[in-house]
Design a protein around this nucleic acid. Structure first.
Lengths: 106, 106
DNA sequence: CCGATACGATACCAAATGGTGTCCTTTTGA
DNA sequence: TCAAAAGGACACCATTTGGTATCGTATCGG
């Protein structure tokens, strides 16, 4: 009874430029089939499919069988984890900037 | 005259949990030497050093030789690229949520 | 002065990654 | 009905990644 199929780190998922491009393409349209995505890349269908699989494992995309094709759609929710992670250093960044500013004003 | 030494993708740099932990440790203190960082990890000194090198190539850390030790410090500025990337999907996310809300309210 | 400390550089290794080609099944539509 | 389209599942391969152990050198401190 395993429906989660090995969870994938969202940071790893977005590390690859091909996968970021996929995310971008999926953001443009509600639902896209695999064969509609592949022409945007130089690599073969299998490679694109594997990237989509990795995104799915990170829960960044959902897919649905529709006849003979598989429709993919973006699920941006896991990106929240990255956003939260960044928020910490954003605060750090601002603090440092403030300290630097006060030093310069001495 | 190459001072940049092969630029590294910031998305790749932050993909590794060890490197994220290093970033976190460096955020806590202004300057930290390599031998002060290694005890926080199970791996050997060389491995930590290599991770720091990758962070440096992504310009996420700066380092400075101080006698026999090398002091590292965080430079959060490249994280801005990730933040900017996220901002796009944040907007997307909000739009979708609004659409969904309006559908439910029909 | 000299042993211990810090660390860069390098060689090496196993496993993961990112791609390929091929085979098979399901579905479509003329 | 049946050829073509769509795509999942593998097997396979080269390169990268994340770790090791080792050697050499510079610096510190008693």
């Amino acid at each position: 009874m395993k429906q989660t199929e090995e969870k994938r780190d969202v940071f790893v998922a977005i590390a690859d430029p091909t996968r970021r491009k996929l995310i971008r393409l999926l953001a443009d349209t509600d639902e896209v089939a695999l064969h509609e995505l592949t022409p945007h890349f130089q690599m073969g269908r299998t490679a694109v499919s594997k990237h989509l699989m990795i995104l799915k494992e990170a829960d960044l995309v959902k897919n649905r069988k529709a006849g003979r094709e598989t429709k993919y759609r973006l699920n941006p929710e896991p990106l929240q984890e990255v956003k939260d992670w960044l928020a910490f250093y954003d605060q750090f960044w601002k603090e440092r900037a403030a300290i630097l500013k006060s030093i310069l004003e001495e």
